[in-house]
Design a protein around this nucleic acid. Structure first.
Lengths: 344, 344
DNA sequence: CTTAGCACTCTAGGGCTAAGAGTGCTAAAA
DNA sequence: TTTTAGCACTCTTAGCCCTAGAGTGCTAAG
């Protein structure tokens, strides 16, 4: 038999093993594969033996069937798998959710985690839009007490951030002037742009209207601090736990550690922010130890052709990639559309 | 022996059982109690038998020591327990955390969940200050596009909420007028007050400056919606899980369900909002099934003598009440002070 | 009322066994 | 040369029995 056919048969067997294991979480024996593919169980055993040698599948123990390795899943996701179209029923449900008017971006993002979880039955993850990356649209200072000013920032993406600062002097009268100054000076710049421009200004105008500039400088400092923060939202953390891989308390705990210390997840998503399309990390491909039994499927969403955030799911490596990858993709497109529509 | 002494000895034994069990999570045998109290193990067994009959302790099985029942803990918390003073080291740590300048209330509240968890080694819970209950201080409308207005609300407590509304007309010019109108009309009222006043206004001025009033009405509607939401923050969800009661995956899952569906917890805390001092719910005293292996210790925090929110901890019924109750109390006092100072 | 003594109960853990699932190898069949 | 049938082998799982140990409850004596 020519080499091509051997490969093809191996692939077919691997595919059968994976799709069976993904559904049942039970090791797959040669007999059950033989029923699907037509060859005898002995032949299948030979093929399986080859697949195991090449590292695509393993044994939990001698007398058990085979289960896919991370490498097996990777091969499946990379070439074997046929992506399924998202079900019209699901698409309808998603569309419906986003058709409802939302009152701010936080609202949209939080809802998105729930939708991700609801559709995929995994835990939904959304990295909040990066304020840092979006351009500055509007600042408003509101005096709310003696020497207390509320600063409200609006980015072009519609993200709003606010913080309260204590000013050196009572600024009640000057609030409007500073607001106007900041707005006209910095409109349309990114945060980095604002910072640069501010520093130049400070050098040029050492003497004139000093206190105003100083106050503005304080405000920008607070802003910069505020934007360092990553915000990561999770949804459907408990629906995951009905999966058999979380029968042991230990695996549940490592999952919880992931959920609680969000920094690892958020770093991971941030690194891939600029990546077009879907990214999949399978098991050991994750650097974080707690995540090495998990797969993570993510995709970035955009605002006016700029990637501003990323969303996806995390679950056991045994997940229905062929179905979930299109789902994540679809949701990221809808989020993109919704955010763009939200700001017209 | 007079009745009083019998009672006293029973109490003493119950206290020993509880404080031992709280520390080790191991059933307490008669011999170990006898070592502490001086009587022989046989005597202790008699006393234990009485305590069991009265429902304060049980057996996991015949040949095991005793463990406290919910009723036992209740009795301990209600009368037996001697509250310990908070350790100066802990108090110092807490004070330090709150001395750092925070940039907004969300920040303070989130930090508080972490501090609660860090000090008590349970999961920290904070019910966000009720916007509904605080009086209106400042509203700001910011035009951020054609027919899009950002509404920023500031309550006297310093809580800030924002939402974006679509207006019927392009309001760019009128934004300031509406802002001023709303500010002067409604300053110092609660939400309910604003609603009432608005409705009266609408009736009186059927003809004059109609569109203005209509716009204002829209805004208030969105506001009212926004304040229905409860916000509950949790911290230290995974530190709990090192406790032996969470060895079984099932118990972990029911805990996760509590964490994920926050509405039950938040309802519970809201109900007790007006209660002075510490509230403790032990095991079956909780109506929610998932919580029946847990105890919840909470206390309200205030703004200017008004209860505005509530904070506390949730953990296994086996917790060090004598130590944790003062800790929760202390933190609620510090949060009260911090919030009041934050707005002077 | 307290205590010593003793029989009794129950759990946890180890060792053993049998059933079942699935493999790997070999030799025969296609 | 590839496929298949057959069979011995391995390993897990569940159940069973047993023992050691912890702790009780009861009784009778102090």
């Amino acid at each position: 038999m020519p080499l091509k056919d051997i490969m093809e048969r191996q692939n077919k067997v691997l595919e059968i093993i994976i799709s069976s294991y993904v559904g049942t979480a039970l090791p797959v024996g040669s007999r059950s594969v033989s029923k699907v593919i037509g060859f005898s169980s002995a032949t299948i055993r030979n093929i399986m033996s080859d697949l195991e040698e090449q590292g695509y599948i393993t044994h939990p123990h001698t007398s058990a069937g085979r289960i896919p390795t991370d490498k097996g899943y990777r091969c499946y996701v990379g070439s074997l798998m046929r992506l399924k179209n998202i079900k019209t029923e699901e698409a309808r449900r998603i569309d419906e959710e986003y058709r409802l008017k939302r009152k701010n971006i936080e609202d949209i993002i939080k809802k998105t985690t729930e939708i991700l979880a609801g559709i995929t039955h995994q835990t939904g993850i959304v990295l909040f839009p990066k304020f840092k990356r979006s351009v500055f649209k509007r600042i408003n200072l509101v005096s709310i007490g003696r020497k207390k000013v509320l600063v409200v920032l609006v980015a072009s993406t519609g993200i709003v951030r606010h913080f309260i600062i204590d000013t050196k002097d009572d600024l009640d009268r000057e609030v409007e002037a500073i607001t106007n100054l900041l707005n006209s000076e910095y409109y349309g710049l990114t945060i980095d742009g604002i910072k640069g421009k501010l520093l130049r200004r400070l050098k040029e105008e050492r003497d004139s209207s000093r206190s105003l500039i100083e106050e503005a400088s304080d405000i920008i400092d607070s802003m910069l601090q505020l934007f360092q923060e990553d915000e990561l939202y999770l949804g459907g953390t408990s629906c995951l736990l009905s999966q058999p891989e979380f029968e042991s308390a230990n695996s549940v705990k490592s999952m919880l550690r992931i959920f609680e210390d969000k920094s690892a997840l958020s770093r991971l998503m941030e690194e891939d922010l600029e990546k077009e399309g879907i990214t999949v990390y399978i098991g050991k491909e994750n650097k974080n130890k707690d995540m090495q039994n998990c797969s993570i499927v993510t995709s970035s969403y955009r605002f006016k052709d700029e990637f501003i955030g990323r969303l996806g799911i995390i679950g056991p490596t045994r997940m229905e990639y062929s179905h979930l990858i299109p789902a994540v993709n679809y949701i990221s497109e809808i989020v993109t559309r919704t955010l763009n529509e939200f700001m017209e």
